[in-house]
């Protein structure tokens, strides 16, 4: 009899712990997709950064109207750069929609501080006109960037940490794969934050507000740093 009673209490405790663990795991680990809520602590950026932050200050590419585009943001601003293609019906428009909404969620005075570039990784199909039409559908001030010089495009992508491959498909339509990340560049031309595909929309907007406020992730020199746990030594990634 006593055994039964004493055993039932730990079991109840165990249940509570399991529920707590599940809840914590849910909050921290899930919430994927662009419809997910925002549940991480405010201290962290949702995007990640490479260390040291890649510099794209010397990278230029032609815009659709023929002028050379550099990628540093305006003073105090943030430049969002995306490598994509207009035939992409799923991943690219999801990210650009999120960008549109993130910008719209900013105080009006802050919106002009954010600029958006879409760099085509499929210039054979993305004419200047098509690309411009595509990006400005989402962001009226968005800049269409394209070059037919694959060596230039590849070098530029590499500077950001982006990659892509366009191969002839069986049905005649090219198969395209690409790094579906969004890059935030600061006014010094540094890629200060990177958002993988699947970042929650609210999280993107929140990160953007913080970047505009001058906050920077740990490992990126800036007016403010956010303490974070050091990197997992097993991955071999430097901590800062």
């Amino acid at each position: 009899m006593q055994d039964v009673k004493s055993a039932s209490i730990p079991r109840r405790v165990a249940t509570v712990v399991v529920v707590a663990v599940l809840t914590a795991g849910w909050a921290a680990g899930c919430g994927g997709g662009d419809t997910a809520g925002s549940s991480t602590t405010a201290a962290e950026f949702s995007g990640y950064t490479r260390t040291p932050a890649p510099s794209v200050a010397s990278v230029t590419l032609p815009s659709a109207d023929g002028t050379e585009v550099g990628f540093a943001a305006s003073p105090g601003g943030v430049r969002l750069v995306y490598f994509g293609y207009t035939s992409c019906p799923d991943v690219c428009p999801t990210t650009l929609s999120d960008v549109k909404r993130a910008i719209a969620s900013l105080p009006e005075a802050d919106r002009p501080k954010v600029s958006v570039d879409m760099v085509s990784i499929d210039p054979a199909r993305d004419t200047a006109e098509k690309l411009t039409q595509y990006v400005t559908t989402f962001v009226p001030t968005g800049v269409a960037v394209r070059t037919d010089d694959d060596a230039r495009l590849r070098a530029a992508a590499r500077a950001f940490g982006a990659d892509y491959e366009v191969t002839p498909g069986a049905d005649g339509n090219p198969e395209v794969i690409h790094t579906a990340e969004l890059y935030a560049v600061d006014d010094q031309g540094r890629v200060v934050l990177i958002w993988p595909f699947g970042t929650a929309r609210d999280a993107l907007a929140r990160d953007l507000r913080r970047l505009l406020a001058g906050e920077r992730p740990r490992g990126v020199a800036g007016p403010s740093t956010t303490p974070r746990p050091t990197a997992d030594p097993s991955t071999g990634q430097p901590a800062s």
Binding site: A36, S39, E44, S46, G47, Y48, P196, T230, A231, D232
Partner: peptide, 12 residues
């Protein structure tokens, strides 16, 4: 790495 503070789901 969870300490990167991501909210992303499984795609990352």
């Amino acid at each position: 790495k969870m300490d990167e503070g991501s909210e992303m789901g499984g795609m990352d």
